[in-house]
């Protein structure tokens, strides 16, 4: 009898619980449906943090036209209009072949360099039904210096350099994102005496949103076992992203002259704290 009583009370309790649960139709709906996977979009506004790439890839069938520009050094004096007389430009096109694969090509005025790259995105940060703490992108590029009459760099092979990079990023909150960029750059032939063909570097960068459409970005690449050359420095850049509808404008100050990995990681000749700073901008338009 005691058992039966317990059973009945249990049944009673279950009935009451389910009745109350149904009392609120919204919680019934929540019970019946599961939260979909929520992908974390827009870890960064642009495909470039400043000089280097971000985990942002082009979406499927989306084409981006990117104009990157660096002026001369701001400490070059009034005669050079504080660097504005000097111009370094890279024109680039990037296209999303699939959701996970972006291809791009570019041409830099510096050393008349052509570059081509692939960006593969195997992991995308998400929460909800499936949680993934980071976004991960593998970036690889090839750059060809087409500058003629450079002593010792006449043959095609010596003009080529390759970059491999893993981009690991996390958007901690809508306003705060960080990224790590372990990088390997292989130059078939190096200009520096005793220079190594392979250069490992670790990049670190991030952004803080100042308003919904403006963010402050910073990026630094540390070179491991860097050649002992007082004319070469680690690349540092600080800048702003300004977003207006289809455009992203990036304005920045950096000690690097070029806008491809081989250039700004291994061949940065400016001393940021000595005032060798280049003002520059990236303008991107997505079609």
């Amino acid at each position: 009898m005691k058992k039966l009583q317990t059973l009945l009370i249990t049944v009673f309790c279950i009935s009451v619980t389910s009745l109350f649960a149904q009392d609120d139709l919204m919680s019934l709906l929540d019970d019946q449906t599961e939260d979909p996977i929520q992908f974390i979009e827009a870890t960064f506004k642009g495909s470039r943090l400043i000089n280097g790439h971000t985990v942002q890839t082009r979406k499927h069938r989306e084409l981006e036209f990117l104009i990157s520009h660096r002026f001369g050094r701001v400490n070059s004096g009034a005669d050079e209009l504080f660097g504005l007389d000097v111009s370094n430009i890279r024109l680039g096109l990037e296209y999303g072949l699939t959701k996970f694969l972006t291809v791009g090509v570019g041409r830099s005025s510096f050393d008349k360099t052509f570059d081509g790259f692939l960006k593969v995105k195997p992991l995308k940060q998400s929460k909800g039904a499936k949680s993934m703490p980071i976004s991960l992108v593998y970036f690889t590029s090839m750059a060809y210096k087409s500058l003629k009459n450079q002593d010792g760099f006449e043959d095609t092979e010596s003009k080529l350099a390759y970059t491999h990079q893993i981009l690991i990023a996390r958007k901690f909150s809508p306003g705060l994102s960080f990224q790590l960029m372990p990088t390997l750059i292989h130059r078939n032939k190096v200009e520096e005496i005793n220079g190594d063909n392979d250069q490992f570097a670790l990049g670190i960068g991030g952004r803080v949103k100042l308003t919904q459409r403006v963010s402050l970005n910073a990026e630094y690449y540390y070179r491991y076992d860097a050649p002992e050359n007082p004319d070469l420095f680690n690349s540092l850049a600080i800048g702003f992203d300004i977003e207006t509808g289809g455009h992203v404008f990036q304005l920045h100050f950096t000690n690097s002259r070029t806008m491809i990995e081989r250039g700004f990681i291994t061949e940065t000749t400016g001393d940021y704290f000595g005032g060798d700073i280049h003002f520059g901008f990236n303008v991107s338009r997505v079609f």
Binding site: L25, M26, L28, L29, D30, T33, P36, Q38, F39, E41, A42, K59, H60, E62, P174, Q212, R213, E243, G245, G246, V286
Partner: peptide, 24 residues
């Protein structure tokens, strides 16, 4: 009647629009 509309499930002609819609 009760309705739940997941915002990320809105699909646009241009994916940049979707990004701005969600982000901004």
């Amino acid at each position: 009647v009760v309705i739940n509309i997941p915002i990320q499930s809105f699909e646009f002609d241009k994916s940049l629009m979707k990004e701005h819609f969600n982000e901004n």
